[in-house]
């Protein structure tokens, strides 16, 4: 028995070893290149510092870009609520098997396709700009938030609902007075968490042409304006930290 255990362990280690050697080769990992390239990185950093703080050409467009990014994240989150709620309710346990499987598969598909891919598709449909970003976020977010919501609904304690059923309450009364009070705070908390994530995603979407401050970062890199890029990245840092603190504070109050 122990011999077999050792044998299994040896096989697992060997397979993992081979996989890593293969991965090392495929990704062309080369510590030497990293060491040789330190000069390039140093130059990059030297050019990025100090950040360019010119109001008209950099700071003002940057702030407008941040607002656009925030707006994409906001609409991408709120406009996905109806569909996410629908799929979440259909995807809770105890439903008809076909409805359950169907909604779970739709949500899995939407989750599996990255928002960047959706963005590229929508850019070809509606052109470059923030609207493509909003559409991309909606699609991806319905999959993720729907899944999170249906899990939250599955997890609530059935006890309070049972207690009301025992007293003779009808199903709608049970839902309104036991199920919803238990589940709504969790749903709102997850919604805020997704808003937080979506604002960050909308930055990446900007890189592929969906507007906002991400687009400005991409542009400044392509024009070798690294000092402008530094300003934008600092702004992004402030934006992300602000959104994160806000959603964390609201979630704490809900909890």
């Amino acid at each position: 028995m122990t011999t077999r255990k050792y044998l299994t362990a040896a096989v697992v280690i060997a397979v993992l070893g081979v996989a890593h050697v293969f991965a090392w080769g495929t990704t062309e990992v080369s510590p030497a290149a990293l060491v040789d390239g330190w000069r390039g990185m140093a130059r990059f950093l030297a050019e990025a510092l100090p950040p360019d703080l010119d109001w008209d050409t950099v700071v003002q467009p940057g702030l407008e870009g941040c607002l656009t990014t925030l707006a994409i994240g906001l609409l991408g989150t709120t406009l996905s609520i109806p569909a996410a709620l629908l799929f979440a309710v259909m995807g809770t346990r105890g439903r008809n098997r076909i409805v359950y499987q169907l909604s779970r598969s739709v949500m899995s598909f939407l989750r599996a396709v990255p928002d960047v891919v959706f963005a590229l598709v929508f850019v070809t449909a509606v052109g470059l700009g923030p609207f493509a970003g909003v559409l991309a976020l909606i699609c991806h977010n319905v999959g993720v938030m729907g899944k999170l919501w249906s899990e939250a609904m599955d997890e609530i304690d059935p006890g309070p609902a049972d207690a009301l059923r025992v007293s003779g309450a009808r199903e709608a009364q049970v839902v309104a007075n036991a199920v919803l009070p238990a589940v709504v705070p969790a749903l709102v908390g997850l919604l805020l968490y997704r808003f937080d994530v979506n604002v960050r995603s909308s930055l990446v979407l900007g890189l592929v042409g969906a507007g906002g401050v991400g687009f400005l970062i991409n542009q400044s890199i392509q024009l070798f304006q690294f000092d402008q890029m530094a300003t934008y990245i600092l702004m992004v840092l402030v934006l992300i930290v602000a959104v994160d603190l806000l959603s964390a504070a609201v979630r704490r109050r809900l909890g």
Binding site: P160, L164, G168, A169, R170, A176, N177
Partner: peptide
């Protein structure tokens, strides 16, 4: 099995839901 987020009196009221019409109980 109380609804922990609701206040005490609302929880007690929930025991009497069966006698209420839907419009007064949501």
């Amino acid at each position: 099995h109380l609804v922990r987020r609701r206040n005490v009196i609302d929880n007690v009221c929930a025991g009497g839901l069966a006698g209420l019409p839907l419009s007064r109980s949501l």
